[in-house]
Amino acid sequence: MNNVIVYCEIEDGNIVDVSLELLTKGRSLADLLKVQLDAVIIGKELKGIEQQLYPFGVDNLYVADDPRLYPYQTLPHASIVSKLFEEIKPEIALFGATSIGRDLAPRIASALKCGLTADCTSLEIGEHEDKKKKKIYKDLLFQIRPAFGGNIIATIINPETRPQMATVREGVMKKEIKSMSYKGKRINLEVEKYVRGEDFVVRIIDRHIEKSKINIKNSQIIISGGYGVGSKENFDLLFELADVLGGEVGGSRAAVDAGYITHERQIGQTGITVRPKLYIACGISGAVQHRAGMDQSAMIISINKDPEAPINQIADYAIIGDIGTVLPKMIKYYKKNTK
């Protein structure tokens, strides 16, 4: 069987977190399948980049290093990855579900005519029997994600096509160093052989990338608000509670869609995944796509007018009430009883 490969993203010389998380997952999948872990990195000035990657258990690192390859552009990156995949025929290929990964992975899946599953919340190895074809597929990648329609989790497989491709959001998988002394092999790709002249038709005129100021993923306390918060102004109460408790504010997609908070704060299947010590869900009903991003929290408190809200079923404390009444009381008590 061939290897597992991770497409690694780079920003300002650093491999981004989601890529390291995928390498950690890729390493464990490779171990299960008894194959090696590959990684591909495309950019400029990549001297020494292997130092950031080997500790995560990378056996073979494919590097395309050329001044034209950074910042990211769809066409040259797609050409390089598609061609590389045709040569090394990976069994599994993983991409971050980022602005870049979600732009690149479908283009590659189309070129290679293989299946791609977006926003997986879990990846496992399993067996599948096709009763019609009387065929057993061993060691398939089970791509697990909540599916449309509420409380459903779907397992997607690609029995016939390779690589089996999936994207995963930042924070869903855990990042873990395998060994600081792990050593892989660096393979430099001859860029000219992988790109076409017309791949460089797009010109980047201007680019502003901000360092994320909000650090929800690493916050131990998250006050999260949903559609039930009712307005952007009402979110001030959540920010105030977060402020006094030293936490961060997150939210549901309905709150983002309604314009109460920005997308960077969205928690769930298509947002970020968090595992804080304490998660306070305010006016959130608890749809499966939301729970996918927070159900690993150590303690969950729900504040909801509706005693039947599904979120209450995974909560440790379910406060039945209006956030407009409950939050000020919490803030008041905390301010009064701590220094």
């Binding site: 989790i153 397992t155 497989i157 690609n158 016939e160």
Partner: peptide, 11 residues
Amino acid sequence: SPTKVKKVFNV
């Protein structure tokens, strides 16, 4: 369609 739904389950 290379992707197949193997199973769905209600949470």
